[in-house]
Design a binder for these strands. Structure first.
Lengths: 374, 374
DNA sequence: ATCACCAGTGAATCGGATG
DNA sequence: CCATCCGATTCACTGGTGA
């Protein structure tokens, strides 16, 4: 795999030449097929520098669809089974992209709206200001165990779930690459903040990220900063030259420990029985629910024991017995059951956390056991 | 023309029976083809009342496409040459709708994002909160002299061009129609404010507006208020009954309350993570408290990271880590934590203020940032 | 009259490991 | 392939009740 390099050529062809199932995530910013008419002027009569490059011209919708199906199909084969893809577009092409993604078997996870902080106004006053672009995030298939760093996204948003509408400025000012004449090097350079969020959401450090329409290499630059491996593909020498220089000047600046995000789901599993084995809870201890409406006794084997209405007993895991007490389909026993700590009641999750901290300090003695029991 | 009545039956069939070129605008809220799996429960174990009605079930994407092509084709013939159509959908169906619209010769004018003020969260934490729906506004053809009430839209928006992202609350409370059992009469009733803006943008009083998926008749009720003629089509007796009653009780008067967009909040919320995404702070930057007694490092996800006495690490939001450092129950992390600016230390609140000023320069007037600029 | 608290709810493609 | 079990997971808003 040609990691951390730019390949020159047709992206479908090059993707077909790489080993199948070898890429964790693909970010694609394909031609939008804008179909612009004549020139557009601002109210002050200055001319709008539109995207009229040859690579954005297609003779018909069918030509665009064929082109799209070709590269998306190659992209799908390149992804690992649990990989995912991001594509970005506007109303000119996003419906074609979305339809073909679905037809090829991709499973759409979200459509994301990039709300532009500073869009170009509609100078003619004939439509609404086109103030957003759309990203589609899709897994390779319905069965994929795609990666989503939920906790990182929540943390980025001050502990509130990240929504499907993102408000970010355009790429302007110093971030915008210029060519030797001081003109913008690429007509549609995307802001790094957009890629930062995409990479943070759906990849891990060390993952391989491919961008088939690399342009000025925003994906590569952000991937390098965030210690993801990247592969870029483009057909234009001028873009490859600009991207190469840009990425060479970019440092992998973020430390490993800073790149880590914690997810409860990925923490070490602690069976309830370990609390008893290690004396954090004694057999016979009485647990209650938060409202003190139900009680259960701790059995020596890690089961809980409750008395039933008919004078019998019931036993089961902390989760099963919590669900039964509430008449609910499921229950997180760790947060439901509380133990007595002096005059207060604490969730048994506190004991789990305590044990987890201890185990982390002594990885040599307990690590193997913990790992094998996971 | 059966103006201001509801027709019962298949919408494509009924549209074919009406005179061609006789309708000025069509608003369509077709089935979304959600393809839901099993049941979904909230964290409190209550069940989500999903949209699982028979009319939303299609056996395949092809079946859905055939259905869509059929009614959109009939709709196109029904429009005047200068007429336009609005369709609404989610990522499940909007790409199919958009592709078929384009294939039939409709000319897309805008895609509009309805950002929901109060969407349902993602309960499992597996994706981004699906916080918007998409509307497509299209003219009958590229040559259409479609109607767009530019000045009305600008006036609605405090004299700034209306953007393509609209921030509106869901239809809840008193506006939501209930059946005889007190249950919601329709699973997906749209808010009147949404229809108000659509009608205000693209029709004139006296115009004829048709809704082929009439449901509880929101389109008819708002059209009546705004003195547009309306035609509704639906297949379900229960919806027709509810819509008939609703429109009979609606008066043909323009309700000024509807004119208002959701009021702006005083200040927009800036998550700490935005400073990192936008490069105002780098991951790894060291923050200190005003007395330089505590330090914390900035994580890539917007959490702060501190070293604990026992050699471990702790992470959390700026507020939580500020509280922990002081042993206080709460803390305003924005004023507590300081970053190094040359030789001086400045509260990170300065960076927030800087970003806020930048954002304020480009006010998102359409819609109120509320808590969710995102 | 006001406030605090609780319950309910909205177009939702909402697990993963183990046996 | 399927069954079983563990255990992680929610935001904004409305309306009712009781102090």
């Amino acid at each position: 795999m040609p990691l951390n390099t730019i390949q020159k050529g047709d992206c479908a062809e090059i993707m077909r030449s790489l080993p199948k199932g070898s890429v964790d995530m693909i970010f694609a910013d394909p031609p939008y097929n804008l179909q612009l008419g004549g020139e557009l002027h601002r109210p002050d009569n200055s001319k709008v520098d539109a995207c009229d490059d040859h690579w954005d011209q297609f003779s018909s919708l069918k030509t665009y669809d064929d082109f799209t199906r070709e590269w998306l199909s190659a992209a799908r084969d390149l992804l690992t089974d649990d990989g995912s893809i991001w594509v970005i577009g506007s109303y000119h092409n996003i419906f074609r992209l979305g339809t073909i993604l679905q037809d090829l078997g991709f499973w759409v996870l979200n459509d994301i709206v990039w709300r532009k902080a500073n869009p170009m106004p509609n100078f003619r006053g004939r439509r609404f200001t086109n103030a957003h672009e759309t990203l589609i995030w899709a897994a390779k298939s319905e069965k994929s165990k795609y990666r989503f760093n939920y906790d990182a996204m929540k943390a980025l948003n001050e502990d509130v779930q990240m929504r499907s509408d993102w408000f970010l400025p355009l790429c302007t000012g110093g971030e915008r690459l210029k060519d030797d004449n001081g003109e913008k090097a690429h007509p549609t350079q995307k802001p790094e903040a957009l890629l930062y969020r995409v990479l943070m959401a759906s990849t891990l450090p060390g993952d391989t990220v491919l961008d088939p329409f690399f342009g000025t290499g925003t994906t590569g630059a952000v991937a390098k900063k965030m210690k993801r491996n990247w592969i870029g593909i483009d057909r234009e020498d001028s873009y490859i030259k600009a991207a190469t220089k840009r990425i060479a000047e970019t440092k992998a600046e973020i430390d490993n420990d800073l790149l880590q995000t914690v997810s409860k789901r990925e923490e070490q599993r602690i069976p309830f029985g370990w609390l008893i084995e290690r004396g954090l809870l004694k057999p016979g201890a009485v647990l209650t629910d938060p409202k003190h409406e139900h009680t259960a006794k701790v059995g020596a084997d890690g089961n809980l024991i409750t008395d039933t209405a008919d004078g019998g007993q019931q036993r089961g895991s902390i989760h099963r017995m919590g669900a039964a007490a509430q008449g609910a389909p499921s229950c997180n026993g760790w947060t439901y059951w509380h133990y007595r700590d002096g005059k207060n009641y604490q969730p048994i999750d506190n004991l789990r956390q305590k044990l987890r901290t201890e185990l982390a300090k002594r990885p040599d003695t307990t690590g193997t056991e913990a790992r094998t029991l996971q």
